Amino acid sequence: MNAVAMKFKIPEQLNAAKPPERRGIRRDFVRMMVLNRGNGEVEHATFYDLDQYLKKGDILILNNSRTVPAILYAEQIRNNKTINPKVEIRLAHRKTEKSWEVLIVSDHVKDGDQLRFSTKLGATISIIANREPFYKLHFSLTGTQLYNEIYSLGEPVRYEYIQGEWDLNYYQTVYASVPGSVEMPSAGRAFSWELLLKLQRKGVHIAFLQLHTGLSYLLDDKYHQEPSENTESYQIPQETVELIQRSKQNGGKVIAVGTTVVRALETAVNEQGNLIEKSGWTNLYITKNYPLKVVDGLITGLHEPEASHLQLLSAFINEEDLMEAYHQAIKESYLWHEFGDMNLIL
């Protein structure tokens, strides 16, 4: 895929620099490129018209993970002396009620260094064997108290194409409920409650799972992370399993909202090929050679040429049709990234 994927280039003006609400449109009125899995045909629509492409009995699976403000700043202390008055810390993966794997934007870190974020919150750094560039932070607070302080002190992860320091609320889906993602599960951002209600009135079922996204961008690519090294925590409840099974039995299609949902669902398939209630960590790497066992369709954003997400998309549709659709998207001036336009593959 990489050789094929690198044949397109995103013009600078197609990087969505602002949320759609700040461009004068509703979040559910972004554009939607509809891609037919069977013949590769492309249609151009508006996301609010999603109900026209789904049928009664289909089921949408949403990731209810809530984005946390993952950029924090702290005073770095060693042997009771301040060695850095303001070091940047990027949360990467929550490991326990009081510990996180993090990226520390500094070349001067030692095991046992102390971090002081505020009068309420401190942490101790531990070096993790064979996990460069990640460190483990053991915080002085736990559970809800820790999250409250993180939300009080942190900033959302923002990348260089974003214009403006948009508030954390712009990095949430309307249905997000469980804190844990350090980057927004952005495929669901375009949904509004109005659109979800419209879909349900048509008879489209809605179900939830949880996958907490980790950091995808590591210090200006100083470190490279293989897709199989991207390990994220997930939880699929029994209620969602039963709703999916019922929909499939009645001829409905399972539509994953985001690559996070695809990874979680396909991870929770047992040896008999059945989806089961499951939680844990997944590093599932899906490519064109992976036979999808649960998911029939996908709602996603538009991805960069080097992104491993494109390889996952090639499990749904052949690479040539996918690349032809992406060239059309560029020609039609679709917008990329978390504040951009959407792609339905069905």
Results as ranks from 00 to 15, higher is better:
24 G>T: 03
68 V>R: 03
274 N>P: 05
249 Q>W: 03
130 N>K: 15
149 E>N: 11
319 E>A: 13
196 L>A: 07
36 N>R: 00
314 S>D: 05
90 R>A: 12
174 V>G: 00
337 H>S: 10
294 V>G: 05
144 T>S: 09
55 K>W: 09
79 N>Q: 15
159 Y>C: 02
65 S>N: 12
34 V>K: 10
52 Q>Y: 15
268 A>Q: 10
209 L>W: 04
122 G>F: 00
109 V>E: 08
215 L>R: 11
10 I>C: 03
111 D>H: 15
94 R>S: 03
162 I>F: 05
41 E>T: 11
291 P>G: 06
278 K>R: 11
56 K>H: 00
311 Q>H: 05
266 E>V: 14
101 E>M: 07
93 H>T: 04
150 I>C: 09
56 K>W: 04
249 Q>F: 07
147 Y>S: 11
248 K>T: 04
26 R>T: 01
151 Y>E: 14
281 W>P: 04
47 F>H: 02
195 L>W: 02
143 G>M: 02
327 H>N: 08
42 V>H: 01
48 Y>W: 13
75 E>K: 15
83 I>N: 00
9 K>Q: 09
33 M>S: 00
232 E>D: 05
343 N>Q: 12
328 Q>F: 12
34 V>P: 08
194 E>W: 02
140 S>Q: 12
51 D>I: 10
172 Q>E: 12
193 W>S: 09
253 K>A: 15
222 K>N: 02
223 Y>N: 08
267 T>Q: 08
270 N>P: 11
73 Y>F: 15
208 F>T: 03
40 G>T: 10
237 P>V: 01
296 D>T: 08
127 I>P: 02
6 M>Q: 15
246 R>T: 13
73 Y>C: 03
